[in-house]
Amino acid sequence: MSHAQVAPARPNRLRAWLPFLLIAPSVILLLSLVLYPLLFALKNSFYFWNLQRSAEPLQFIGLANYKMVLSGPEFLPSLTNTLILSVTGTIIEFALGLAVALLLANRLPGMSVSRALLILPTTIAPVVVGFLFRYMYDPAGGLAGWLLTLIGAPPPAEGILGSSTTALAAILFADVWQWTPFFAIVLYAGLLSVSPSLIEAARLDGASAWTMLWRIKLPLVMKTAVIIIILRFMQLFNTFDLVLVLTKGGPGLSSRTLGYTLYQQGLVDFNIGLASASTWIIVIMVNILVTLYAAIAFKNWEW
C-alpha cells in the first residue's frame, strides 16, 4: 500500500509540532497514572514495610525483599503454573479460535447470527466467569461433573477444583471458554479480508484446502493475530481473579499463579515491601517477554 506523506502545502511550525500536540495529552495522562505506582513499588521494594508490623516503612533493606520473593517456596511453582497457563492458553485459544473462524467463514444461512451470539462469553466480567465456573465445577451437583460422568470420564473424587491433576486445567478451561470467541471473531475478520480472487486462483492451481489454509489464509490473518496473541498471553500471565474465585491456588500450590501470589503478599498479608519486589520482578519479566516478542512478531510491520 502507498504510505504517501501528507505533503504540507505551506510548511509551518505548528504543523511540525501538531503530531506531538495530538499525542501529548494521552501520553501525559497515562504517564501520570502509571509512573506513580511503578515508582512507589520501586522505592518500597527496597524497604521493610509490612503493614502488619508498622504503619510506616521501617528501614532500607536493600535487595532482601527480592531475595525473599525469589527464594520463597511458592515462587518457582507459581512461575511454572503461570507459564503453563499463558503458553497453553494462548495456543489453545488461537487454534480453537481459528477452527471456529474457518467454520464461520462458510457463508451459510444462520452463520451471521451465530457469529453475533458467539462473542457473548468475551463480554462477561472475569469475576462473573469465575462464579459461573465455580457453579459448573461444584463437586456436589455441578453440571461439568455430571456431564463428564455421562461421557464416561468422571472427575476425580476430590472434585475438579480439588485435585492437583485438574485444578490448573479447570482454570485454563474457564479462560479458554471466555476468550476463544474473541480469537474466533478477530481471525474471522482477518479471513474476510482474504480476497476471493486469490482463493479462486489458488483453487484453479489445484491447491488443497490445507495448502490454502497454511499458505494463503494463515499468513494474512497472522498480522492481526500477532497483536491479540501478545495481549492474551499477557492477560493470562497476570491471571489472578479466576484463581481467587476458583481455587485460591490449591490444592497445595497446584494452581497458584504469580498474580495470585502477588495478591496474597499485598492485599492479604499486607506486606507492601514484598509485594513491591514481586511487582518489579513481574514487570521486568513481562517487559523482556514483550520486547522479545515485538522484535520477532512486529518485524515487518508498517507503522
Partner: peptide, 27 residues
C-alpha cells in the same frame, strides 16, 4: 504523520495493557 519513535510509542501503549493490575491497587 511519520515521526521517529512511532513504533516505540505504539508498543509503549500496548505494554500498558500488560501491567499486573493487582500490583497497582494500593498505590
Amino acid at each position: 504523520f511519520k515521526f521517529r519513535r512511532k513504533k516505540f510509542l505504539m508498543l509503549w501503549y500496548l505494554s500498558l495493557l500488560m501491567a499486573p493490575p493487582v500490583a497497582f491497587l494500593i498505590p
